[in-house]
Design a protein around this nucleic acid. Sequence first.
RNA 1: GCCGGAGUGGCGGAAUUGGCAGACGCACAGCUUUCAAAAAGCUGCGAGGCAACUCGUGCGGGUUCAAGUCCCGCCUCCGGCACCA
Length: 873
Amino acid sequence: MTDPKQTYDPAAIEPKWQQHWSEHKVFRAKNPGDAGFDPEQPKFYALDMFPYPSAAGLHVGHPEGYTATDIVSRYKRATGHNVLHPMGWDAFGLPAEQYAIQTNTHPSKTTAANIETFRRQLQTLGFSYDWDREFGTCDPSYFKWTQWIFKQLYERGLAYESNAPVWWCEALGTVLANDEVINGRSERGDHPCERRPLRQWVLKITEYAERLLQYLDGLDWSDSLKTMQREWIGKSEGAEIAFDVEGHADTRLRVFTTRADTLFGASFMVLAPEHPLVSALTTASQQDAVDAYVKAAAAKSELERTDLAKDKTGVFTGAYARNPLFAGDDPRGRVPIWIADYVIVSYGTGAIMAVPAGDERDFEFAQKFSIDIPGIFAPQTGDAERDARVAAGEECCTDEVPYAASCRTHDGAIALQGMSMAEGKRAIIDWLVAAGRGEAKTTYKIRDWLFSRQRYWGEPFPVLHTEDGVTLVTDQQLPVTLPEMDDFKPGGQPESPLIRAADWVETADAKGRPAKREINTMPGAAGSSWYFMRFCDPANDQEFCSKAASDYWLPVDLYVGGTEHAVGHLLYSRFWTKVLHDAGHVSVVEPFFKLYNQGMIQAFAYQDARGAVVPAADTKQDGDDVVHAGTGEPLTQTVTKMSKRYGNVVNPDEVVGEFGADTLRLYEMYMGPLADSKPWNPKDVPGVHRFLQRVWRLCVPEFAEKGRVHEWLTRDRDDDVGLEKQLHRTIHKVTGDIERMAFNTAIAAMMIFVNEATKGVDKLSRGQLLRFVQLLQPFAPHLAEELWERLGADGALSYAAWPTCDEALLVDDEVEIAVQVLGKVRARVTLPNNCGKDVALAQAREAAAKWLEGKRVVKEIFVPNKLVNFVAK
RNA sequence: GCCGGAGUGGCGGAAUUGGCAGACGCACAGCUUUCAAAAAGCUGCGAGGCAACUCGUGCGGGUUCAAGUCCCGCCUCCGGCACCA
């Protein structure tokens, strides 16, 4: 017959409630205009960085951020918000295509299968997503609008073709954007990359550099993330200065500098080896040396140029420039022009004026090649020896120090001595402007966004090439879908496999003229740059997102994800949002108001004496120690990334199978602060599971014959005063902690309540348990729903009003305070809450009498409800 | 090298505003219940000391009646940038 026991059984209750939520569309978000939409409710948009559905399935790292946003979403629903909490798939990308090449399976098939797995896994975790809004970036109904947005960019002059050198990765068979290349190697797969000239589509993100920088200030993002974006944008204010070149009357060499004030100390010029003027300026006698250097620099990978080439190298071109500050016959104005690879062609003007007295790199170079180092500073730091060396040009000085008397033109038009650095810069720039020799200038490190890939599995461009050049596909012809193919290998050198789809490539434009389709495809970051907009209005086939929907939902109120997208995705999304704003399609300028970066979930591992990690399979327990299974060498515990290689990857399915989704959710939130990286400890998981069992037993008797809930919970009765106070403290703590995203301490508070309540199980009233279940609901929703139902509560738990806290119940009648003598706790006294200083001191003095004997109290500190401190001699 | 963040028991962590360091959980130990429990409950649990007490938040200084928290100087780890003129 039926099992007489009723134990906490997540395997039974979790699917039951998941099905209930799904069937009743409990978490469907209502848009303005939908039936039942309440315009009075405030909105809340909680978004996860949507996953790339890999073949490996969900990792325990995914549910960490997802649980956090789910808790906030459920809390916001309970506090009367209209909540948008969607999920979808970042589904175009390289791994599916690599897999296709290996196995001859179409990427659309593997992607669809992976999405199935991800969706199933996410659904077993009980996230309150509005699944009706789900889509993938590879859905034609979605990328139709990605293509449409590209058209907007093109029409606004923000998309262009370029032949500039780009990062080419041989192993991946594609080009990569700057942020996808780390130290000359691909971020994905760690393959070597090199610079190559290729025809590419590029987006003019640099045009938005200033606004991308300015608008950071108003965002609720961590300072470290804002700093990363600021540094990536790399704004730098200075001047551009034009130098005449001897013997080249029509040539002016332009340089960018942030230290225009050091122009008096410019004793040579350096061009990047790739600078367009190099060949024109090089003299016959230097030709061979320059050619050899240029060739060598081109052959060097970026890795060699940055990491290894710390030693300065360079070659004299034979040409001389004229420093504009010095009159024609002044020998100080004649500066040699060198080329060196420490100057980067793509930054500033690709050329610099070298001031060895004020720049470490220039100083190093001048020393190595015995170039003049004119002293231009007269520091008075007190370190006389150093001051003298700086004045003599024997040491470089980058600090703000007084200028030397020599910083002066013959005619006295400029004399820097006595000026501050800011005044010096101003003086020089004003003079240059008046003389037509330069102007103030701001440059940015950020480069335009390399926006094409030579791959199959990405959005095709809505672009046709005809005899007359580029034409766009009409809106009526969107989406441009991918042709069916079964061979996805890159199409020979830097070309997409699409080149082999001849029927697809050969087409006609709107006027019927023969045209070839663009065979590059868009990069992975294309689809993820606006998906948060589409979630507002996912089924719209007339617009990418209706203005009404985006006006209502945007910006995203809470966005949670990893730091790895600090400069890529987050910058691109901000850029597209601004472009769409400028084009009048969305009202917001910034897409993500609050951003929260979760830490990484790591794993314990064991390492040997050399620090090498030993795979879990090669370790064994030896008493209290862990040793190498083969050699018996003792090992020490360490923390690493989860990795197949180390055998320490935790599979969420297994955790759900053994303990249930509520335990997984709760454990991931209980591990520590969301923002921290922290190790997964399998031994801690049963601890939170035990907590849920205790909650269960608080409500449900062990044997079914005693009823579905404890007898005393079937009727209303007076609340136990002590428990009621404890409950209010818990409500207060949990509410505040959810608001500040401190889920670990919220859970600790609930544990304290359950420990209290368990001490006298039958003291807990039905009303108290119901309120506790509401607090638990965002964290462990399945268990909460089950208990809510068993207790016969009215209405849907997910929308039941959040329990309120009576502040009056937070204070106790009596408080215990510490009595200190000279800062050391010597006694404790119990006093009425908020009692006065005199009362407290009198009692404290008595309690501390033993330690005050023979001493004179010189000061008495009283902190109400906290402590008394006697300062005694 | 530069810019962030962090360092607290055997472990994960707590201390939100300068006010009793170690909440909560794990591990461990003892006890109760039990035929037996890997179950449940209770108790203990920073170090030293019989104790009174002393010491204790990476290290060294400082400010303060009082410092994990503030200041100065270091060390280590993690993340980012890296010849950006």
